[in-house]
């Protein structure tokens, strides 16, 4: 995959927005990869957690917002608890989801779920899914 990096991308509002929504200093990351090493969802991710942070530093907005990874993360917080630089990676993923969700780009909607799907899961599953994946 070819990726274009440029000063203009790095200096966009997007990087500031991610830092603001996540409350994290993206530049603290030194790419050790520990977050990805312990993430139980990596096998389903297209951009790994450490790469998410790198992409976010570089302002690669289009790649990040189109990424499958932000939706397969289950906010288990393993990455956060292991990062030697104290970065909350899960909060960065949340910021990326929020950027989309706040534009009403819901990932799931109650209307798309069948009655059977809704009926078989407990309230805790449905509420948390809709809290994470809708605006």
């Amino acid at each position: 995959m070819r990726i274009n990096i440029s000063r203009t991308k790095i200096e966009t509002e997007f990087v500031k927005k991610v830092e603001e929504l996540s409350g994290q200093n993206l530049l603290a990351c030194y790419q050790c990869g520990k977050c990805s090493a312990g993430c139980p969802a990596v096998s389903e991710m297209d951009i790994l957690p450490n790469q998410i942070i790198r992409y976010a530093q570089l302002g690669l907005k289009d790649e990040l917002l189109a990424s499958k990874s932000i939706w397969v993360c289950a906010t288990c917080l393993t990455c956060n608890s292991r990062c030697p630089k104290g970065i909350n990676i899960a909060e960065v993923l949340e910021a990326l989801r929020q950027i989309l969700l706040r534009k009403r780009r819901d990932y799931v909607g109650p209307a798309e779920l069948s009655e059977e799907e809704i009926g078989e899961v407990p309230p805790i599953a449905l509420i948390s899914s809709l809290r994470k994946f809708t605006s």
Partner: peptide, 20 residues
Amino acid sequence: KTECCAAYQTVTDIGAVADR
């Protein structure tokens, strides 16, 4: 014992839950 069960992914991605 502290590995995530895939949590609320159970609504939209049962396969991921089955893996875990």
